[in-house]
Simulated scan of single mutants.
Amino acid sequence: MLPNQNPEFDALFDGMLFSLLTWEQLENFWGRLDVGAGWYLYALGETRPELPADGAHVATFLRELDMLLRKEHDEEYCGIVYADNLEQPSLIKIYDPNHLGTSCGSSKQKVLPGWVMSRMPPSDLDPSHHVPQNRRRWWQGIVDLLGGNERT
């Protein structure tokens, strides 16, 4: 079976992205996002979403993700969240603090983010590493917070 590909998504995913370097920038960025704008939430290693998440799921995801990033990326800076547009994003890559590799792309091996938020259906993305069970449990915990109604 061929992977599901979306050329528009692929162009944004592989295009120029801007980093949110500070925690304050990230906090402001999260605050500007329209949670009801039809975001596809994709945890790499899980099934690619067929439908956008509802606003409650997006808000829960952002809250829980922000807590996880601040806890596990114990740095004075953020620098692991990237967007195609910092004011009106269509695509956001969030790198897993426990699997950063060289997210800036300076190595020959491409490190995929842990999570992707997209305003368009994403292409299938196959992480080159094993996604740890604690990340899978974290994702399932978000799904469970919403009563198991996973639309992502």
Rank of each mutant, 00 (worst) to 15 (best):
E46R: 10
D124N: 03
F61P: 11
V58N: 11
L26K: 09
R48A: 00
D126T: 14
D126Y: 13
F61Y: 14
W115I: 13
K108F: 15
G38Y: 06
Y95H: 06
S123N: 00
P3D: 02
R63Y: 13
R63A: 14
T22V: 03
R151P: 09
C78I: 06
G141W: 10
P7K: 01
E64R: 15
R70I: 04
A83C: 05
C104L: 12
E75V: 04
D96G: 07
N85L: 03
L17P: 01
K71I: 03
M120K: 03
M16T: 10
L51K: 12
R119H: 03
L17G: 04
S128P: 10
E46I: 02
D54T: 07
G105A: 08
L145Y: 15
P132L: 11
D10P: 00
L26W: 04
G15Q: 01
T47F: 02
A11P: 10
S128A: 15
N6P: 01
A53E: 13
E8M: 02
E46G: 04
W115E: 08
M67Q: 14
L65C: 14
T102Y: 15
H99S: 13
L146V: 12
W23T: 01
D96E: 08
L62H: 07
P97A: 05
P52D: 02
C78T: 06
W23G: 00
F29Q: 07
M117W: 01
E46C: 04
A53S: 14
L21D: 06
A56E: 15
L146R: 15
R119T: 09
N4D: 01
W139Y: 14
K71Y: 05
G45H: 09
V81T: 10
H99I: 08
W138T: 10
L44N: 05
K93G: 06
H57G: 14
W39K: 08
N134V: 13
G55H: 09
I80F: 05
E72P: 11
E76A: 03
D84Y: 03
G38S: 05
G101E: 07
E50I: 04
Q109D: 15
L125F: 02
M120D: 02
L62E: 06
K93E: 02
Y77V: 04
D54G: 11
H57E: 15
R135Y: 11
Q5A: 01
V131W: 08
S90L: 07
S106H: 13
L17M: 11
L91N: 07
P7F: 00
L62M: 12
P113Q: 05
V116R: 05
V81E: 04
E46M: 06
P89W: 01
E72K: 10
V81S: 05
H129Y: 12
I142E: 14
P49M: 03
F9G: 00
G45S: 08
D34N: 08
L65A: 14
L20K: 02
E50C: 02
P97H: 05
L86D: 10
M16W: 10
R135W: 11
D84N: 08
H57I: 08
L69E: 08
D34L: 03
P3R: 00
G55D: 13
G55R: 12
N28E: 10
K110W: 12
D84F: 01
A56G: 12
A56F: 12
H99E: 15
Q133M: 10
L33S: 06
G45D: 07
E50D: 03
F9L: 00
E24S: 05
W138P: 09
G45V: 07
L41N: 11
